[in-house]
């Protein structure tokens, strides 16, 4: 099995620093944050520009070029509800180190992003939801099948569809956690790749608790077959847990210095 893929989530327009940098098209703060995440062990960098209704295509093109040129063509996840912006980003994207990821499609309004990914030979994150949180795993599986069918009809390799089970917040949806893990197991049994917004689980908990919950969740999810997560790679505790879990899963050969590489 391949190593777990960490998609660094820290270039996000919710962050005031990043929001300002995107407004001003100031490369330094964005490059700095990309480099920090790569240094910390991220494979992919997520670029969330928000809806960017005004200048989406222009902004995404600029962001893709800025980050890839400064960071040895690091592979990117293009994260926006603005489809034109994703297409524009892919048009200037360098594939040397990996295909672009379209973040994201779902079984509802955003299902056409599957077609977009297929047409551009990209990976797509496919949310197993339609509108709101699915009530159970049967519902999740229906959406998963819809998405999979759509992708395969469009000629996608199923390995390029990374299914997102939707991690749920522990504080409020504690009783649903095992169901999400079970669903990851179902995806894995089907041989499918999976990813998701890991830190959702610890939303609203005290700051010192978050890494503990995130780390436990990722370890349990990797045990069930999770192949990737969208997360903060600068969280050392979670990264160590992922590296150790990769060792236990025999995805990566043990050496005494395994945490350093």
């Amino acid at each position: 099995m391949a190593k777990f893929v960490v998609i660094g989530e820290r270039i996000h327009c919710i962050s005031p620093t990043i929001k300002k940098a995107m407004e001003e098209m100031n490369p330094e703060p964005i490059i700095k944050r990309a480099k920090e995440q790569i240094e910390a062990g991220a494979t992919y960098i997520d670029v969330n520009i928000g809806p960017a209704e005004k200048n989406g295509p222009e902004l995404m093109k600029w962001a893709v070029k800025t980050i890839q040129e400064a960071c040895n063509n690091v592979p990117l996840a293009l994260d926006t509800s603005n489809r034109a912006a994703i297409e524009a980003g892919i048009s200037v994207y360098d594939r040397t180190n990996g295909k672009p990821i379209v973040n994201s499609a779902d079984a509802g309004d955003r299902i056409e992003n599957i077609d977009l990914a297929a047409a551009n030979d990209a990976i797509v994150i496919a949310l197993c939801s339609k509108a709101g949180v699915p009530s159970d795993n049967d519902e999740r599986m229906v959406y998963c099948q819809e998405l999979l069918e759509r992708g395969m009809n469009e000629g996608m390799d199923p390995s390029d569809m990374w299914f997102d089970p939707l991690f749920l917040v522990i504080k409020g949806m504690q009783d649903k956690q095992m169901a999400v893990l079970d669903f990851i197991g179902q995806l894995s049994d089907m041989g499918l790749n999976s990813t998701g917004g890991l830190s959702n689980v610890s939303n609203g908990t005290p700051k010192y608790i978050r890494p503990i919950l995130d780390a436990a969740t990722v370890a349990m999810a990797m045990c069930r077959g999770l192949t990737s997560a969208i997360m903060n790679p600068c969280d050392a505790r979670v990264m160590e847990t992922i590296k150790a879990s990769d060792i236990i899963k025999n995805n990566f050969l043990y050496a005494d210095s395994f945490l350093e590489i």
Binding site: L253, Y254, A255, D256, S257, E260, I261
Partner: peptide, 14 residues
């Protein structure tokens, strides 16, 4: 010792 093989390479690269 395959783990040592890798470790030596890590140490040399470091």
């Amino acid at each position: 010792d395959i783990n040592l093989a890798k470790q030596l390479n890590v140490l040399l690269s470091q």
